[in-house]
Computed example of a mutant assay.
Amino acid sequence: MSVRILALVGSLRAGSHNRQLAEAAAGLAPEGVTVEVYDGLAEVPFYNEDTDTAAGAPEPAARLRAAAEAADAVLLFTPEYNGTMPAVLKNAIDWLSRPYGAGALKDMPAAVIGTAFGQYGGVWAQTEARKALGVAGARVLESVELAIPGSVTRFADTHPSEDAEVITGLSAALQQVAEAVAAPAGTAS
Rank of each mutant, 00 (worst) to 15 (best):
S2K: 12
V3Y: 00
I5Q: 03
A7K: 01
V9Q: 05
V9E: 08
S11V: 06
L12E: 11
R13Y: 00
G15S: 13
G15T: 12
H17R: 12
L21S: 08
L21M: 15
L21C: 09
A24N: 02
A25G: 12
A26D: 06
G27W: 03
G27H: 02
P30V: 07
G32F: 03
G32E: 00
T34M: 01
T34Y: 04
V37L: 02
Y38V: 04
Y38H: 15
Y38P: 06
D39H: 12
D39C: 00
V44E: 02
V44F: 02
V44P: 09
Y47K: 00
Y47N: 06
N48K: 00
E49K: 05
D50W: 01
T51I: 13
T53D: 08
G56Y: 04
G56A: 09
A57T: 13
A62D: 14
L64C: 08
R65Q: 15
E69K: 13
A70V: 04
A70F: 04
A70L: 07
A70Y: 05
A71L: 06
D72Q: 02
D72P: 10
F77S: 10
T78D: 07
P79K: 01
E80G: 11
Y81I: 11
M85S: 13
M85E: 11
V88E: 04
V88I: 14
K90H: 08
A92P: 05
A92D: 06
D94H: 05
D94A: 06
S97G: 04
S97P: 12
G103F: 00
L105E: 06
D107T: 15
V112D: 03
I113F: 02
G114A: 03
G114M: 03
T115Y: 00
F117Q: 15
G121T: 01
G121Y: 02
Q126V: 09
Q126Y: 03
Q126P: 07
T127F: 09
A129Q: 02
K131T: 14
G134E: 01
G134Q: 07
V135W: 05
A136Y: 01
A138T: 09
R139H: 05
V140N: 06
V140A: 04
V140M: 01
S143N: 13
L146T: 07
A147M: 06
G150R: 11
G150N: 14
S151Y: 03
T153K: 12
T153A: 12
R154E: 09
R154S: 12
F155H: 04
F155I: 02
D157T: 13
T158I: 15
H159T: 11
H159N: 14
P160E: 10
S161M: 07
D163L: 09
D163V: 12
A164M: 00
A164K: 14
I167F: 01
T168R: 14
L170I: 05
A172V: 00
A173I: 08
L174D: 11
L174S: 10
Q176I: 08
V177Y: 05
V177P: 07
V177T: 03
V177W: 04
P184I: 00
G186I: 10
T187S: 15
T187F: 00
